[in-house]
Design a protein around this nucleic acid. Sequence first.
DNA 1: ACCTGAACACCGTTCAAGT
DNA 2: ACCTGAACACCGTTCAAGT
Lengths: 230, 230
Amino acid sequence: MAEQQQQRRPAPALTPERVVVAAAAVADRAGLHGVSMRSVGRELGVEAMSLYHHVAGKESLLDLLADWLMAQIDPPPADGDWRAGLHARAHSSRAALGAHPWGLSLLESRRTPGLSLLAGHDAVLAALRAGGFSVRLAAHAFSVLDAYVYGFVGTEQQLPFEPGDGADAMIQEMDESLTRFPALAELAAELVTGKDYAYGDEFEWGLELVLDGLAARLADERAASAPDSR
Amino acid sequence: MAEQQQQRRPAPALTPERVVVAAAAVADRAGLHGVSMRSVGRELGVEAMSLYHHVAGKESLLDLLADWLMAQIDPPPADGDWRAGLHARAHSSRAALGAHPWGLSLLESRRTPGLSLLAGHDAVLAALRAGGFSVRLAAHAFSVLDAYVYGFVGTEQQLPFEPGDGADAMIQEMDESLTRFPALAELAAELVTGKDYAYGDEFEWGLELVLDGLAARLADERAASAPDSR
DNA sequence: ACCTGAACACCGTTCAAGT
DNA sequence: ACCTGAACACCGTTCAAGT
């Protein structure tokens, strides 16, 4: 049983990038839990110890993986208006984190921001400044938007509402508790009868609420700094 | 060297509660990463294998730990108005998650909600309903508030802005990138000169924005359903 | 320069054995 | 009933050795 890889493909040289992409593939398949130096090595047809010649160690590999993920998120277009730009950026963030369910936990575990994250932050701040936000107000706006988007994805991924995914078990457990939790029971009843409900739709509702709030604060700020306001 | 514990204290019997509290103590000291069956056993003066008589395994222990954490969060008072109740609940959530920095990652990793989480959700929904929100609007409100609070804590904990904690390294890295990221540079300059800035203050600003937005939606809903509206 | 085998100090968990 | 030692199949990482 000769190894096919030996003669047919010279196996492209290992690079940090190839290691990161392999780690992402393993994570997509087996979760963040399944990413080990040994499993990533196996993905590349190489021993775990070889990886240490291209990444400093597992923590460093995870830093690179987090940066790879941030690079999947589109920046807001530089020329559009701030609201459309942030709206698009929010949906792109949710899409990237939805495509890689291990992403949020990974980002949360990193302590030092990568270049892609800094670049994304810079682009969002630039969009706000171009839209007329003061530096201080842009900082506020950035914070509330970022918190909302990441928080929504986190709560969304916790729900076992993907069909068959465990919703039955949850509903059964909740059935047992319905009398103890009447407000939840009321909600469950309404959402089950009103068939058009999908939790994912809440994203847009809350995003519009936040963007409306930012537009109002921006209008306040402009009114306060206008010459005729005093 | 006789073991003091043998004769002096009979060592209270192990219970699931004692195991969970020991796990929380280990996590507070060594992070979620430091919680192992062996380390929790050591905390209790017992071998790791003994724990299996009280919890089903590590995953089950983590489920119990997550529920213990949710129990630390105060429910909104049942009699106050909705806005004050949700405001207090939001601050209590942030305080609990701030006191146990491992909490958010842990909650994110759990797939089945515990009783404390369900009870908390129920109390928040009840406060909204008592405040006049329709079931559907209460679901929207719950979602956006929850997302904001959890998301803010997550981004807040990622910042290395605790004094000395690594802020120097970050600022140095960013110094290097300032020309590449002019909007970040502008922000950093303003926030450093304006010494009164603290990222933690953003929490209240964003919370008020969300609560204002909810109040406006509630007013809209009431106007739409009022008899004189048609 | 790049890859690797053996080794070390860890994991979660099973199981048979102790009391 | 509760606790435990040994064992198994894993981890991340070091190091000396190979090419």
